[in-house]
Structure formats: structure tokens, C-alpha cells
Design a binder for these strands. Structure first.
Lengths: 165, 165
DNA sequence: CTATTAGTTGGAGTCGACTCCAAGTCAAGG
DNA sequence: CCTTGACTTGGAGTCGACTCCAACTAATAG
């Protein structure tokens, strides 16, 4: 029952896509708990560490500063968030941020789609679409109604506004 | 028809949420075209500049490095993307990035929701919810089916793994 | 005429997040 | 015993994105 597979720092880096240096750095700034060491002093990582690192990496992808990740680690470790009202508040407010970030991102996707569409219209026949990659997830952007206020973000000019000089 | 309202740098900063320093910085690194100056040398911004700044700000929210924003500005200015296949490719690939970023973000939202739910279960009665803010957009997270592979991101441990010392 | 306000410039400083390096340890191989 | 390889450490260096500063100018108010 204790077949707990463990990993070297190199394996861990490979698995998680986080560099060895960065792993040590995260430990240094206590974003990760001090990893156990083998007799020779080498770090050992277990599955739970890997998962924690993945969480960090995922949060980082969302642009969250490292310092703000701490509360997430706390809850992920303790798993009883209701005991720390401050933490819960932070989580809530982060949730808000993220939701609005998603909206921002969706806008950018829309913007790109629009530009791409525009291109298609202009040369809608013989466009040599040799794009091998980018086939999956390339369907509908799954629009979630953006607030109309937000919709006015982008310079759609160029459409009717070419006479702007 | 040429009531073109213009703005000072301060007004522009206020409108866009981008600081005056940053606006000058963006001009310095040519992320913005050199703004026109008044007789006294002060910058003047027009609506189209504001929109461009908003685009930058929006892209920045998505965590895009400034250098990578240039192609977006190009298309936004020229509006005929099909003429620049490289650009189109960049846009496509960025679209991919962003879509996967959205997935990451959605995962974090899920993670938070889960933790928040957990908290509710434990003290599902008398939780003194004095959160005045955070009322809008607080409903359903509008799940878009995450790929199952991605689903295995988070350390749900803490549930059964309290004996980890 | 001086003070204040709103801007200008070039350049220096800061901060977060790495990334790299030198010096050292340990285990295995020739 | 010496070398190679995988790791350790503390600390220095880098890079992107600002942010701040001193010195200056131009317009307005008292």
C-alpha cells in the first residue's frame, strides 16, 4: 500500500514543465514546502508534490503573482476553507478576477476571430489554408454573452472608418 | 463632422486605466505610435488612440508580453490581415494559447468553487455571509466541458490524505 | 514677477520571477 | 584514485514592465 513512487527533481521538472531551477526557487520562497531529502541530500518529490506544482503552474498560467498563490496552497493543503474567513474572501475575490479575465480573453478570441473572418471574406475563394496544426478546439468559441459595455473594447475601425486621416 | 474630441495624457490615463508613465513608456518602445503634440509639446490623444490603448490593456490582462502585442496592433491598424500570412499564423496560434488559457482559468474557478462548496457543506448553516461586494457574475460558472485529461490537475487530497507526515 | 499646474525629456531605479554560476557532495565506473 | 554525472547550496545576474526622478517648459492665477 505504500508503493509511493517518488521522483527526482529532474523527473519532476519534466513531468510538470517547471524547470529545476524554478522548483528550487519555489522551495526557497516557500511556495512549496521543503521537499524531503534522500541520504545524499537530493530532493524527493511525491505525487502530491507533483499535483501541487501543477496547481502552481496552472495558477501561473492565469497570470497570478506568486505571492497571491499562497492562499490557494493553504486551502489545497488544509481542505477546510471555512475555518479561515480571510482566505475564503481572497478566494472569492480571486474568483471574480478570474471570471473577468476570462471575459477579457474571450474578447481577444472574438477579436482574432473577427480579423480572421475579415480576411476570409476578402479572399474567400483561393485561400491556401495549409494550416496543419490548429485543428482541435478550433470550432465555435462558445460565446458566453459579453456584457455590452465590454463589447466596445476594440478598434473595429478599418471597416467603415478607413477615412480617419 | 470633425468634432474629433481629443484628450490630454491625464484624461487618457484615467479613461483607460493605464498610467501616464506607462503611456509614455508604450510610446517610447513604439507600442503606440508617437502621439501628436500640441504647440506646447503636450501629447494629444484621440478616440482611436484610446481604443488602441484599450486593446493593449485587454491583451495585457491576458498575460501577453508587450512584444507579442505588436502583430495585433498591425492588424488592428491595417484591418486586412489576409495580406500578411505570418501575422495570420501568429494570430491563430495566439488564439490557441488563449483558448487554453481560458481552460486553465476555468479550472481555477472550478477549484475555487469546489473549495467554497466544501466550506459550505461543513458549516452549511450559520455561515455569517457578510460579503457585500461580489454579487454580480456570481452565479453558475458556465462550465464548458474541460478535456478530461486536464481535469486531473488539482490536488483534491486533504480529503483522504491527511496522514501525510 | 512668482507660484502653481500640467505637461515634457532622458535616464535611473524597482520589482517579480526566474536563470545562471561557482563551489561542493555523493555514488558509480574505469 | 580520478572522473563523470546528478544533484546540493548561496548568491549574483537578467529581463520585462513599469515607476520614479530631476530638470525643464509653457500657460495661468494672484
Amino acid at each position: 500500500m505504500k508503493a509511493e513512487s517518488t521522483f527526482t527533481i529532474k523527473q519532476t521538472a519534466k513531468q510538470t514543465g517547471v524547470s529545476e531551477d524554478t522548483l528550487r526557487y519555489y522551495e526557497k520562497i516557500a511556495l512549496m514546502p521543503r521537499a524531503d531529502r534522500k541520504d545524499n541530500g537530493h530532493r524527493v518529490y511525491r505525487q502530491e508534490d507533483i499535483e501541487r506544482i501543477r496547481l502552481l503552474a496552472c495558477l501561473k498560467k492565469t497570470g497570478m503573482p506568486l505571492e497571491e498563490m499562497r492562499p490557494f496552497l493553504e486551502v489545497s493543503v488544509d481542505a477546510d476553507p471555512a475555518e479561515f474567513p480571510e482566505l475564503v474572501e481572497q478566494l472569492r475575490s480571486h474568483r471574480e478576477n478570474i471570471v473577468s479575465q476570462i471575459a477579457s480573453l474571450q474578447q481577444v478570441v472574438d477579436f482574432i476571430d473577427m480579423k480572421l473572418e475579415e480576411g476570409k471574406y476578402r479572399r474567400n475563394c483561393s485561400d491556401e489554408r495549409q494550416d496543419g496544426a490548429a485543428e482541435s478546439m478550433m470550432e465555435e468559441p462558445a460565446h458566453k454573452s459579453l456584457s455590452p459595455a465590454e463589447r466596445s473594447y476594440f478598434p473595429m475601425s478599418g471597416r467603415a472608418g478607413k477615412s480617419s486621416d
